[in-house]
Amino acid sequence: MAQAEQITETEASSRKSKPLNHSIAATTEFLRLLFGQLQSGLGAVIVLLFLLLAVLGPIIAPYAANDQSALPLLAPGAGHPFGTDALGRDVFSRVMLGTQSIFVTAGTGTLIAVVLGAAVGLFIGYQGGLLDEVISRAIDAFLALPALLIALVVLGVVKNLDFVAGSWQALLADSSVLLVIALVYVPIVARVIRSSTLEVKTREFVQAAQIRGESRVYIIFREILPSVVPALVVEASLRFSYAIFLVASLGFLGAGARPPSPDWGLMVNENRRIYQVAPWALAYPAAAIALLVVGVNLTSDGIKRIVQKRG
């Protein structure tokens, strides 16, 4: 055997890495980068605070959402830090409780969209052919419609349907906003993931799996999915910010949550007529929406930058 060949290329650092350590290290590195930057760090802190409020909201809130025991239109002060609205409801409590509802609606909607969209995108991207062609065209066509328009129409129709209370249709109708969020974002997520899949698919390790005779499911989930995850995370954070935006807009337009639920968008709409006398009733929920979306957007931007830098 050739002499020169025997020398093994040994790296100076022969650190041992195990899959678990590897992902922990990667996550730590990711968080360090995220919080290391002023903008994305700030955004992440904002989002985390709101998340905390969403969990603790029911405990913090001094009043129930529809407790009308106080005097109407009280200015912010002791007992009512954000004042009260025209019906004498505590604005602070309603904003706190609204946090939870927006996280549940926008968050769950996004989650469904991301999971379904990723599944569709991975499948058609890997499969290719006629099926991919047809679904992709349909997605393009669907995306020509503004999301808000679809949401309004669907919700408008669903609102007028009568279902037997407790039936599965009624349950679906109750979570209609959440489902609509999922519906309008599945195609976008699918398109993004499809294009990442197309790129990963051409890499040689996928071909290596193919010539080992691996099944489609194995290749999609074991070989391709991990490489698509970064793109998926970026997309999910972006979708989440749009979803919050959309839920708030729908609430404001009266197509989302119905009174008297403590929905931020709905509160802005209810209180905009009394702005002259009670600006706080409008300002606090509006500020909450703006702050949360800014926070999510800053975080999402940061995630995108980190992922892109990694290449």
Binding site: R203, E204, S227
Partner: peptide, 15 residues
């Protein structure tokens, strides 16, 4: 088969 590009021939997420 052995492929051309070592950068791509191993799955970066597998040891």
């Amino acid at each position: 088969m052995i492929f051309q590009n070592p950068q791509n021939s191993l799955n970066p997420y597998l040891t």
